[in-house]
């Protein structure tokens, strides 16, 4: 057994899963949403860095399932169940979905943060996963880190300091 703590980093439009004692982190969430799904008893947690609300927005090419709220949450949950998580005990915490720039533009893309949050919540509700805590909206970037042992989500922002959810 390797006891040194590793911090698994999740990039933009990416996902990964960790078990104790490791931590999982994603940096620089803006309008993107970080979704943490965890099974506390199994000390297993997955994190997806979601960029867009809906896979129907994809216009061409190979689809990156971690990019869209609807596909990412489903895939994350099914991967976790493969690794031994029990679907009835899964819980979720989310952060992100900020509005980084204030625009008066009519373009719907400018509201992408709130739309990402709505899409993630809808998907979690559909999969019957309880949303335990959230830190969404506002206009600050966030870096989040989750510890599958304590099930605390550590959120760091530039302007508002650090807090645990």
């Amino acid at each position: 057994m390797n006891d040194t703590v590793q911090i698994v980093k999740v990039g933009i439009a990416d996902m990964n899963i960790v078990t104790t004692p490791n931590l999982i982190r994603t940096s620089g969430l803006g309008s993107c949403v970080g979704v943490v799904v965890y099974d506390q008893a199994k000390e297993l947690a997955g994190l997806a860095h979601v960029m867009l609300p809906d896979s129907s927005l994809a216009k061409s090419g190979i689809m990156n399932i971690a990019k869209y709220a609807d596909t990412a949450v489903k895939e994350l949950v099914s991967r976790m169940i493969e690794l031994g998580a029990r679907s009835y005990s899964l819980k979720a915490k989310i952060a992100g979905g900020a509005q980084m720039f204030q625009f008066t533009s009519s373009n719907d893309m400018m509201r992408i943060g709130p739309r990402n949050v709505e899409a993630v919540k809808r998907e979690l509700a559909m999969l019957k996963i309880t949303l335990v805590a959230e830190d969404v909206g506002g206009s600050s970037g966030r870096t989040i880190e989750f510890d599958p042992k304590t099930c605390l989500l550590n959120i760091r922002t530039v302007n508002k300091g650090i807090r645990d959810l």
Partner: peptide, 25 residues
């Protein structure tokens, strides 16, 4: 109209990638 933000690079740049991200990685 330009918008100003003082924040993390990831949070700022990802906003400009949204259009692009619908087509490409």
């Amino acid at each position: 109209v330009p918008a100003l933000s003082i924040d993390m690079v990831g949070a700022i740049i990802s906003f400009g990638l949204i259009e692009l991200s619908q087509v490409s990685d």
